[in-house]
Structures are given as C-alpha cells and as structure tokens.
Design a protein around this nucleic acid. Structure first.
Length: 467
RNA sequence: GUGGUUUUAGCUCAGUUGGUUAGAGUGCCUGAUUGUGGUUCAGGAGGUCGCGGGUUCGAGCCCCGUAUCCCACCCCA
C-alpha cells in the first residue's frame, strides 16, 4: 500500500513560480553585494558541533540540528569495556556534526582556517540555507536562507557605513521602500547597564528592553523587578531608553547621562561617527537613508560587541525582522585568531519573500515561462521539420519548445490543435508556430489571435525584434 | 520546551442537537465546435472525512492518543 509522502516539519517545497521569485530576491541582493566589492564563498551544510556549540547561547544550543553519527555507535556504547561515563562522552559517540545555524560562525571558522590565504580586510558574501530546530510559525521556518555580507580584518566604521548603504539599496531595489533600519551599539547598552546598576546586568537589561514595544514599560519593569532590580534603578533605565527626538539630539542627551561610563561614551562616539558620515551621502540623494537610533534594540546573538542593526518592514503584517547584523570584535578569537574585528549584516530571504508576496512587489514577468514560442506539428513529417525549426530558433537566441506529442486517439486526430494550444495557453507562451501540411509556417500571436504566413527567417526576425 | 488552534474532492472551503446515499465553488474529463486555445452552455468522473484507538443501535460531528498546519510565549532571519 502506497504511503502518503510528506516532508519534515518546518520545511517546504518550492514550485516553479516560487523558485523564480526567490531567485529574483537572491540575484537582486547579490548584485548589490558585488557592487560593493564583496566576494562569494560557500561553506558545508554540516559543521563540527564543536564549531557551533556555545556560540549562540543556551537557547541556540537547544535549537541546533544534530546529525547522528553513522557507524557502530551502539556497539561502542553497550561494550562492557566502554569508557563512556558522562553525558558529554555519550553525546560525542552518537553525534559530532550539526547543521549550520547561521552563516556568521561558519564564516569565522573559515577565516581562521584560511587566514594565510586571505587578504585583509576580507569582504565576503554568502547565500545559503541554515537550520534551526525551532517550532515553526508565521515567518519562522526550520530551514531558511540567509544572505550575509561581512567584512573582517578592519575595525573602521566605514564598513558599517557600507553595510547600511547595502541594506538601503537592496531593499529599495526589491520595492520594500517602507522599511525601518534600526541601529544601536552594544557598548551603549553596556554603558546603560553600568549607569543603571552594574555592567554585569547588560544581558538581563538587553533581553528585557528588547521587548519594550511588545510588552510595554510595565512589562519590562515587571520582568526586571523579578530579577532583583530596584525601582530607582528602573527609573534611571527608563529615563534613558525613552529619550525621543532627532538622532543627534537624543545622542547628546544620552551622552550627558552616560558620562561615568567610558564604554558607553565610546559607543556613543561610534554612533555619532556613523550618523555624521551618512550626512554627505544623504545630502546627495532624493531618498535619504532613514537610520533610526533605538537604544532598546538588543539582538540576541551573544557575539556582538559594537554596532547592531535590525531591519523591519513597516508595511504588511509581518512584524518580525527581515534583516539583522552587527560588529563582533572577537568571534575568530574562539577559534584561535585574535585581534581580528568583523562586522556583518544578514538578509532573511524567506521573510523578505513573505513581505513581498503580501505586498505584491514581485514583477509580473516572473510568473511566466521563458519560452517565447511553441512549435506545433501534427504528423511525423511536420514534426521532423519542427525539430529543425526549433533548433534554428534556439540558435537565434529565441527560447522555444517543440510540442512533443502527436495526436494519438481518433478524437485527438480530429482536433490536433487542441493539446498544443492548451499547453501554450496554460504556460502563457506568447507565440506559436504552426507547421501546415502544405509546407507553410504560420506564426500565431496568442494574445492578439493574429496569424501570419511567414518564412523561417521572417519569423526569427519578428521574434528577435520584439523585446 | 509551554499553551491554544487547524486538518472533509486535485485546490479553496460548507456540513445543523450524533441519524438514510457527505455538499458547493474552482480545476479536470466529455460534448455543443468538420486541422486553432482562453469565454459561454450541457453532461460526467473524483472523498480511506489526517492517522490509530474508544463511547454508541448508529460518529465527519463526542472522548483519548498521535501526526500536521497555523497562532501566542521563549527566542530569532
């Protein structure tokens, strides 16, 4: 008995229309990456678990897809002489590989392994799927694609500036003009923690205030009170993160409040530098980049140390981020290469797709087949002619197909045009060439329903000149 | 990992307090149409009601388990 096939939870098939739309997004982003001087790399689907574990926090470790070792692991475990005593030793016997969780950590691993071949600063982009064992929901998949651009080996903030421009250019090209690019700085968060209580509470504060727009001030206060924050500390916190106004003005206000924190002041200086560098760029364009400072922006991944970015679409119903990134000063340090700073951004292909699909931002032409003309023959003789004609059309650069089947049943022989016409119609193929038994070629425009008897050269000429 | 929800024809969905033979739209097939498609009209085919148990004289409907979809939390692209 045939079983109903299925695919794993959180994964999806993509039909021709979806793939074409996804590739449109990918190629748009890739074009921008290349324009800014980034070079492509690819890394394996699987990494050693030792590469992945501990890089994304406790939550991240839980979400790693682990790959079961092949081989006789059971024999090793049940062997009476087995040395396995601890959970760790057991885990190592049954699994030592995992599916990549993001593209940044594999990239850091790549940089360390290839440090002698790489010319720094190294600017790479990478567009590949990643996997997370999360529970699927809207905008959240277990298999999804990230498009990353990173620069390592340069601590200049001009890299941040380039990445900001990449975000803007790519989203505008895709038609997502109504997006919000939020920026914050981990050092500012550290400064806030220092001024509010102590630098050790940066993570508690970051996690809590990141939810500010979701659970509100009351919710954040409640969460932090449960963690032992005093009311006066929370008052100081909200005095800072609720500052509103123009970017420059709120930075100045923040500066006065973070006077006692060297790290906080450093973060402010970095943010100021980026805003100032952006000014000449914005003055020379009709569409200035709208960079929004947001001191409540935290972002989870624990390796960020400097600027952090997040992108959300302000149109449509998907509220989660469609891009994110930041600077990490010591990611390669874990793998033994210190003093190499990096900064990168990521585009979330699948969420960008969801936004664009809802807002109908895909070009109409993406839905059609690339076939421009369908050659229709109705017997062995004209089919031979058709083979030749199709070949010549293709040689002339015209995407063509020869309808492969001849009428078989009596009914089909009575109406031999029916199937090819239906096919051309269903696939929106704009032209057909009908091979008459008298040797004439008829070019038919399917939308205008016009037919013209033409020579092959005229047909090629006609189809080549039409866009 | 916690809580809620969805699943009925190829697709989108109805289905009453448990009661004869489970419906609609769309798509598909056939014909009206004598080498020519989309429209219209007429007819036709197509359903293990996610899966496995249970209650009942009787279950698409009630109960338990399981899978799956979606939603919230956690976290994130």
């Amino acid at each position: 008995m045939a079983q109903k096939p299925s695919i794993p939870k959180g994964t999806r098939d993509f039909g021709p229309a979806e793939v074409q739309k996804r590739k449109y997004i990918l190629s748009t982003i890739e074009t921008v990456f290349k324009k800014y001087g980034f070079m492509p790399i690819e890394t394996p689907t699987m990494e050693n678990l030792s590469t992945l574990e501990g890089k994304y926090g406790d939550e991240g470790d839980k979400l790693l897809f682990r790959v079961l070792n092949s081989g006789e692991t059971w024999e090793q475990i049940r062997n009476p002489k087995s040395e396995i005593r601890t959970q760790g030793e057991f885990n190592k016997v049954i699994t030592e590989k995992g599916l990549r969780y993001d593209l940044t950590v594999p990239f850091a691993r790549y940089v360390v392994m290839n440090r002698n071949e790489i010319t720094f600063p190294f600017k790479r982009y990478q567009m590949q799927p990643v996997w997370r064992a999360d529970r699927p929901q809207r905008g959240r998949y277990r298999e999804f694609w990230q498009c990353d651009a990173d620069v390592v080996g340069s601590d200049s903030l001009l890299n941040e500036l380039d990445l900001i421009q990449i975000y803007d250019e790519a989203f505008r090209k895709l038609g997502i003009g109504n997006y919000e690019l939020r920026m914050n700085n981990r050092k500012v968060l550290a400064g806030i923690a220092e001024v509010v209580k102590s630098i050790d509470v940066i993570n508690s504060i970051a996690v809590a205030i990141d939810k500010l727009d979701k659970i509100g001030e009351e919710g954040v206060r409640k969460e932090l009170t449960e963690q032992g924050f005093k009311e006066e500390e929370l008052n100081r916190l909200f005095e800072i993160i609720t500052i509103t106004g123009e970017n420059e003005a709120i930075l100045n206000q923040l500066q006065s409040k973070l006077q006692t924190s060297t790290e906080g002041l450093q973060g402010i200086a970095e943010l100021k530098f980026i805003l100032q560098s952006l000014q000449p760029i914005n003055q020379s364009t009709h569409q200035p980049i709208n960079l929004k400072l947001d001191f409540s922006l935290a972002r989870g991944l624990s390796y960020y140390t400097g600027c952090i970015f997040e992108v959300v679409s302000t149109e449509g119903s998907l509220k989660s981020s469609i891009g994110g990134g930041g600077r990490y000063d010591n990611l390669t340090g874990i793998f033994g290469l210190t003093n190499v700073s990096g900064v990168g951004i990521s585009f979330g292909l699948d969420r960008i797709y969801d936004v664009m699909d809802e807002l109908k931002l895909f070009p109409q032409a993406l839905n059609a087949t690339s076939t421009k003309v369908l050659v229709c023959a109705f017997d062995e003789h004209t089919q031979l002619t058709g083979i030749n004609i199709t070949k010549q059309l293709r040689d002339a650069g015209i995407a063509s197909e020869l309808y492969p089947d001849l009428p078989k049943s009596n009914k089909e022989k009575e109406k031999p045009m029916l199937k090819p016409m239906n096919y051309a119609d269903a696939l929106n193929i704009p032209y057909t060439v009908i091979l008459k038994s008298d040797g004439n070629y008829v070019l038919k425009n399917m939308t205008e329903k016009t037919e013209t008897v033409l020579s092959l050269n005229d047909i090629i000429h006609h189809l080549s000149t039409k866009h």
